[in-house]
Design a protein around this nucleic acid. Structure first.
Lengths: 126, 126
DNA sequence: CAGCATCCCTGAAGATACTG
DNA sequence: CAGTATCTTCAGGGATGCTG
């Protein structure tokens, strides 16, 4: 396993790159959004549907089932009528909030830098 | 702007969600790999091509140009013949290594948990 | 309410060939 | 060596309709 990073902890990079594994899992269009919302509090299916602007029912179902499958999200179906299903983060899911916060902090701190770089680059060339 | 997180720093979630912005930018198939490799040291185009197993010339070019555009990677073309082009991280790019390391640490720490959850889930249902 | 089934479409990514 | 140009494929995702 090759590693990088002169100072600070290394990031492994090879064939089975853990970072890539995470990104393949939560790097899709909706997973992070859902994890973050569930990090806030438990949500029902419909609540998530309303909270996440633009998501289709299909994608919400799909993404949730993947997250449940990966042990990040917990699904609780109440045998009532009409049915009621609650989704919440598992312990594992909650631990994921930590690195996501780090990424978020970076985004907040540097979004303007990126926009500036873009503007500069686009102005120079096209 | 709605925010989440009982304890710890909040993650903003709304229409312009910073986390989503980062993921849209580096959540693709190759960007993280390239950033991490360049975090190691400066690489030439061909070095990256050989280092990243499975990437096509086209995707390497595309991904690099996006990273350059966003100010994360610096491109240095030497006017020699044959041409030689060096890629390295900018200061901004280097700061990105920090949250990526957090994500990597999480991945390393929990990949087995995810695999176990999956196995459990798949065994239960299918 | 929650969610599956079906159809469709687009954009990301691969393969291949060519160039300064 | 370091790309560009073109064609093609495929999976992610949207829209809609139906059901326990």
């Amino acid at each position: 396993m090759r590693e990088v990073g002169a100072r600070g902890p290394a990031i492994s990079v090879d064939d089975d790159c853990p970072v890539r594994e995470v990104l393949d899992r939560v790097g899709d269009k909706w997973s992070v959004l859902i994890v973050v919302l569930l990090g806030q509090r438990t949500h029902r299916f419909g609540e998530l549907h309303r909270a996440i602007d633009g998501i289709s029912q299909r994608m919400l179902t799909l993404t949730l089932s993947r997250l449940v499958r990966d042990g990040l999200v917990c699904r609780t179906a109440h045998p009532t009528v009409p049915p009621r299903v609650d989704y919440s983060l598992t312990d594992l899911g909650r631990t994921l909030l930590v690195p996501l916060r780090a990424l978020d902090a970076w985004a907040v701190a540097h979004r303007d830098d990126i926009r500036a770089a873009r503007a500069r680059h686009d102005a120079a060339a096209g």
